[in-house]
């Protein structure tokens, strides 16, 4: 059973995961800014809390499917920093032996099954994970993460219909950060929200403040519990905001300054931290110690990644098939 969202332990757990994500994101951005690493990176800054809540709800054997902007979802699911940074840097010790890269972090050991760079690509696959669990009599749930923009691609519509029809144990978590690349949500569809589309497929749909830890946690906890009971899928639309544009280095000239300022002023990670202290669920020293531990973990992961070798050139030809083909 999942604990109620107001449980201080739950909020502390969400903060811990959110802090891991925020500090990891900060580290990546610092390395990119300082030229320590040159990769394509889609910052998750501003979207940490909803992912942390998802991580706090899910079990280790549940499945997660996510996108190129997926570091928060991966870390929330338990992705260790070591193989994450090693993969970013294309090292053999990376999660995918350096062959996938930042857009395709995969860690089935912890249920991180697919990270797709193709908008909408993950949704139909999540249905398959749900179907397998259903047929194999497992009570695992699949959470598939995607953006507001992905709600406009055919795969979204096909996947929602099938999931509803087959009562699949899948939670469709639409992270509505109000932009798809450089095009605003308002310029992408007529509907004010994504969640009401669920009704068209005979599925439950909920819009929730994804930056409010308690609110998003209780919605996700309910959706996941329902899926686990075999009562079918839910479309959860978590409202949030991208603080750092589409990709690292995005000049963001299409994002109004006032809007950005307001979002940053309501920084969900800082807000949760403040709430924990104000309500007496945590104290400053404990949180500072937690953050210091996370930073040390990041230091270690980055150092290990840097020291790790690149993949052997023979790796180019392996993993294409189960066995290498002669021609």
């Amino acid at each position: 059973m999942t604990a109620p969202a107001t449980d201080p332990q739950v909020l502390n757990r969400i903060y811990e995961l959110a802090a891991r994500i925020r500090l990891c994101d900060e580290r990546v951005i610092k390395m990119l800014t300082g030229g320590e690493m040159a990769i394509i990176y889609y910052p998750v800054t501003g979207q940490e809390v909803l992912a942390a809540a998802s991580g706090a709800v899910l079990r280790a054997d549940d499945y997660v499917v996510t996108t190129y902007r997926g570091m928060h979802d991966q870390v929330a699911k338990g992705m260790p920093f070591g193989p994450l940074f090693a993969e970013y840097m294309g090292r053999v010790s990376g999660a995918c032996k350096g062959k996938g890269g930042p857009m395709h972090i995969t860690y089935p050991e912890l249920g991180i099954m697919v990270t797709s760079g193709i908008v909408g690509g993950g949704l139909p696959i999540a249905n398959g994970l749900g179907w397998a669990a259903q047929l194999l009599g497992q009570d695992r749930v699949t959470v598939v993460n995607f953006g507001d923009g992905a709600a406009n691609i055919g795969a979204f519509h096909e996947a929602l219909n099938l999931a509803a029809l087959w009562d699949l144990p899948v939670v469709f978590l639409c992270q509505n950060n109000r932009y798809a690349e450089h095009t605003s949500y308002a310029r992408s569809q007529r509907n004010e929200q994504v969640a009401p589309r669920a009704e068209g497929y005979g599925m439950a749909g909920v819009t929730v403040d994804g930056n409010d830890a308690a609110a998003i946690y209780s919605v996700l906890a309910e959706a996941v519990a329902k899926a686990r009971r075999g009562e079918g899928p839910t479309l959860v639309e978590a409202m949030t905001y991208r603080f750092n544009g589409h990709y690292f280095g995005d000049p963001q000239e299409y994002m109004p300054t006032e809007e950005k300022k307001a979002a940053k002023a309501a920084d969900p990670v800082k807000a949760l931290r403040r709430k924990l202290i104000d309500e007496g669920h945590a104290n400053e020293e404990d949180l500072a110690a937690l953050e210091a531990r996370i930073r040390a973990e990041l230091d270690e992961a980055v150092a290990a990644a840097k020291a790790a070798p690149m993949p052997d050139l023979a790796e180019l030809y392996t993993d294409v098939y189960a066995e290498e083909l002669a021609s």
Binding site: E87, G90, R91, V92, G94, C96, G98, K99, G100, G101, P102, H104, M310, P311, L313, E315, L316, Y317, V320, L325
Partner: peptide
């Protein structure tokens, strides 16, 4: 070569 495009810089260069 008859492989997907790899990520690691050394592999992509070799590819």
């Amino acid at each position: 070569p008859n492989t997907p495009v790899p990520y690691a810089a050394n592999l992509e260069t070799a590819y």
